[in-house]
Design a protein around this nucleic acid. Structure first.
Lengths: 337, 337
DNA sequence: TTGCGCACTGTGAACGTTCACAGAAACTCG
DNA sequence: CGAGTTTCTGTGAACGTTCACAGTGCGCAA
């Protein structure tokens, strides 16, 4: 039973005294050094239980220069990102995977300059062993700063214009191809698309996948741009309907935008999928709660997060470099197409 | 310009040398001690900029026994919680508020026993100055352990059966009353409800608010139980429709469940709000993307998070105790009722 | 001039670890 | 049986801070 009468937290010295061995031996026993006799190991184990000892990470970090902490940096204006249903999944999986290795996850937001300065200061202070980068935009000044820090860093999703940074991501382009092909196979003739921001890999690659399949048929008229919000999707859908009479299908770059597109179609009295088939992307929670439910492309986000963490831990453990990973997507047919 | 040729991070000694004063004076200058000459302060400032010095928090924590870190503990099985749209808001606001005070936020999940052990070990190791508790259930064993740690702790939302723990929360009960009254005023006669889990304050208090308004009319038949998931809401709605012929309104304890309820009603060919009016709770993102859009009760989640953080920081700064805060809700009428 | 308080500064010790080193046993082998 | 190796142990130093203490120099009043 842990001793509670003493206000002071037990230190390694207390354990040493209680177990009758020295500080050094306790440290070795605790860190799995093979050169510890079974007797000593047992004594230490007992003493740890008895004293309720827990290692002080600060003291350890001070000498080892390792912190057992990684920072997850959200480099977008935070409002946007937190709304993103994908984010929750990434956070959940990353937290768990890191916990398995007893690594703590610190959340930081780098929305404006002040935030960024804080992040850099934190990292420069040596308080983290690595960085998990979320949704960095091309040209984000944080990237340069990170580079100069020479800290292990891995991104979730490719970072445009900074391909040297290792990442794990879903195969956006092939996913977009799957969906576009599916719409073509359905017999749709005029297939439009609503893209995400083109300075994000999701925005760009999904558009490219769409163009891959449609070739010359993918005219400018058929392409509208959104911003990953519901509202943006709604506006883009209206735009497309105004511009393209007889439009009979649309591939929308995210489920959230697709939900907006559905609202626009409903407003115009168009039936889904009879008049216009709608395909989304993400297979997020909204996809199941729209009416009709969305046919969409599932991103293996759990895997993306798992891989990202694995890569980062490898780098932290001393790997010279790791290869980026691109994971396959899957078409999920429901009622909207 | 920060010196980059040296691989080693600059320490306080480097700053001392560069500024021509001693270690102690640098420390004082950095920590705002009044007994520092203006000349010395200026020299230190210059030297800090010149060397790119950043304080090492580990070394500092080691002697001050303060960490500049708080832990956000998710004590539910994580899958459930991360799905909760409210969670993102709390996380976003908490991260930002803490960042303003230069406090780092560590995420931890306490889903199973192993997780919990990890959390306790972390806290016991003295790596955090305080704990932000999310959605702890009554009887969660983590609570006892937290108590024995004597660490500042504040909860988001009341914790049933542990009212001593300070918290900030929305006024669930009054919010439920607002919605129920609204449905009554609409002229609805048979108003059912779908509750959340009754071991959560949201589940319990919203049911009580409903009962407050309906009085003896709130019979057992009119009450169905869900689990805060879409699917649970759908099942409960079916149950209610089977049980109560002529049901003309339902107050659902969360938007997500309400989305499920809408699906059930649609499946039965019932029109919303004509045949059955539906009221939700939360005013989360789904409320805007269902069809029809949900009439719901807005929780001031940003404020809840802000208050929670404020309370925690006050405790950390030495306040003996802080008072819990209950914040008003607001009815948001849309199309579903 | 002496003494005293005030503003400021430098120094040693401490925080709780790990690491490198040196030394002590115990075991192996010729 | 002695030398060499292997296994195990204890000790001093270091990590980068802050804090308490002991100065130092200066101005000012007695």
């Amino acid at each position: 039973m842990p001793v509670t009468n003493s206000r002071r937290r037990p230190t390694i010295h207390d354990v040493a005294r209680a177990s009758g061995v020295s500080r050094g031996t306790v440290s070795r026993a605790l860190n799995g050094d093979p050169y510890v006799s079974t007797a000593a190991a047992a004594a230490v184990k007992r003493a740890v239980a008895e004293t309720g000892y827990v290692v002080n990470r600060n003291a350890r970090s001070l000498v080892t220069q390792r912190t057992g902490t990684v920072v997850m940096v959200l480099s977008e204006p935070q409002e946007k990102l937190f709304e993103d249903p994908n984010f929750s999944v990434l956070l959940r999986v990353a937290t768990r995977r890191l916990a398995q290795r007893d690594v703590a996850l610190v959340m930081m937001v780098a929305g404006d300059d002040g935030d960024r300065e804080r992040v850099v200061r934190y990292l420069r202070g040596g308080h983290a062993d690595g960085v998990l980068l979320l949704s960095a935009h091309a040209g984000d000044p944080l990237l340069e700063e990170l580079e100069s820090l020479a800290l292990p860093a891995v991104a979730c999703g490719a970072v445009l214009g900074r391909e040297g940074l290792p990442y794990a991501a879903a195969d956006d382009r092939e996913g977009a191809r799957q969906m576009t092909r599916y719409l073509v196979d359905l017999g749709r003739r005029k297939i439009g698309t609503i893209t995400g921001p083109l300075d994000t890999p999701g925005g760009l690659n999904r558009l490219e996948g769409y163009c891959d399949v449609l070739g010359r048929k993918a005219t400018k008229k058929l392409i509208a741009h959104g911003d990953y919000t519901r509202h943006g999707g709604e506006a883009a859908m209206h735009e497309l309907l105004d511009r393209v009479p007889g439009l009979d299908a649309v591939f929308v770059g995210s489920d959230l935008m697709a939900a907006g597109a559905l609202a626009a179609l409903r407003e115009r009295g168009l039936r889904v999928p009879d008049d216009v088939a709608v395909g989304g992307f993400d297979d997020s929670a909204v996809a199941g709660s729209t009416h009709p439910r969305l046919t969409t492309v599932r991103q293996p986000l759990e895997q993306v997060a798992t891989e990202t963490v694995r890569m980062l831990l490898e780098l932290i453990d001393g790997a010279e470099q790791v290869d980026s990973v691109v994971l396959p997507t899957e078409l999920v047919p429901r009622e909207s197409a």
